[in-house]
Design a protein around this nucleic acid. Sequence first.
DNA 1: TACAACATACCGACTAGTTGGTATGTATTT
DNA 2: AAATACATACCAACTAGTCGGTATGTTGTA
Lengths: 211, 211
Amino acid sequence: MPRPPAGTPNARDKLLDAALSVIRAKGYSATSVDDLCAAAGVTKGAFFHHFRSKEALAVVAADHWSETTGGLFASAAYHRQTDPLDRVLGYVDFRRSLIAGEVCEFTCLVGTMVQEAYDAHPDIAAACGRSIFGHARTLEADIAEAMERRGMAGGGWTAAGLARHTQAVLQGAFILAKAGGGPDAAVEQIDHLKRYITLLFEARPGEGLPS
Amino acid sequence: MPRPPAGTPNARDKLLDAALSVIRAKGYSATSVDDLCAAAGVTKGAFFHHFRSKEALAVVAADHWSETTGGLFASAAYHRQTDPLDRVLGYVDFRRSLIAGEVCEFTCLVGTMVQEAYDAHPDIAAACGRSIFGHARTLEADIAEAMERRGMAGGGWTAAGLARHTQAVLQGAFILAKAGGGPDAAVEQIDHLKRYITLLFEARPGEGLPS
DNA sequence: TACAACATACCGACTAGTTGGTATGTATTT
DNA sequence: AAATACATACCAACTAGTCGGTATGTTGTA
């Protein structure tokens, strides 16, 4: 692939960026190819030059979402905490701070898409799954270290499981926000999540089980 | 309204029942009126005789969902527990027992619809909100009674807030199931929810605050 | 009881517009 | 020259919704 002038955003990038906001607001099915082209300021020819189909764009958009958000979290300040539990709680606080403004601005592209696509579009669903579970996996090491430091093994839960739970609560928070609760309803869920993690690490690990 | 033979399901009821399963599997936007008519075994004429529009059907379907599921929970056995906390945990166990089989069989119609409809279809979003928050409200009395019996006031959370949190975790659980986790991922979330509620009621309420 | 007047429930062809996708063109860069 | 990166024009299938019509009531009245 020959390098374009590298400063001007090409049609492909403009379409992907447009997809993030348009699909988050309208959903995958209700977003037409023309909608995406209009939002990106490109023509249909450009669309089908870069993507085999609307479904193919959705898959790439999900990966694009993973990279974009992945970069945001990777460079966030909570990683600098020395206590691994503080890093986990710092992640939760950071997620909380992101919830503001219009609902479509803080909700999750892949959570929205997988609801519509899981049955009819397996490729999209798989891309969304990679994004959600891949992001959860970035939390595992800190949770596992916090568990080890406090001797938490044997409580009936795992680092991977708790990491997945954080994502479930976040996705549920977005649904409640969309159902009329707004940002407040979403923040409330994150506060419960933080309280849960705090309680988990305060509680004594399971008595009858070896650590 | 004159009573029809009362045993034969009419087109309206058949369409509403079809909507519950078809929209849960395909989503609202991807479900066409023809899809619904075919699933219900009725014609398009019957559809628009009973519903002004596809959007109007979705609103009635959301209310129909509330009634159907409402009846299921109202008649469940966990209400017979004498300890209010046991009733709350019994509700969680009951939700856990419902998660089995295909994803489209245990997921939530209104959670699916509101994701697509919250922006473009306010009437549908409002109906979904009534369903979710209305169902949450049915848990409030038991939670409040459990809080009172154990002197839990002042911990920074309320009965209504915890009730909403149960619904957020459930909705998030469905998304993770759709993202490839299957029933196991959903059950895992409910186990975390139960552990959270248990820990909450074991913890001592906030020290510096009056009860 | 008989008949007119009206209402409800439903049918299926039809339409105007939209959909994802294609075919073919042109300008720019290497 | 040749590939890339777009643009324009177009199409067949599908979309929600309409409309004229029918079959089967129900209701009022003489």
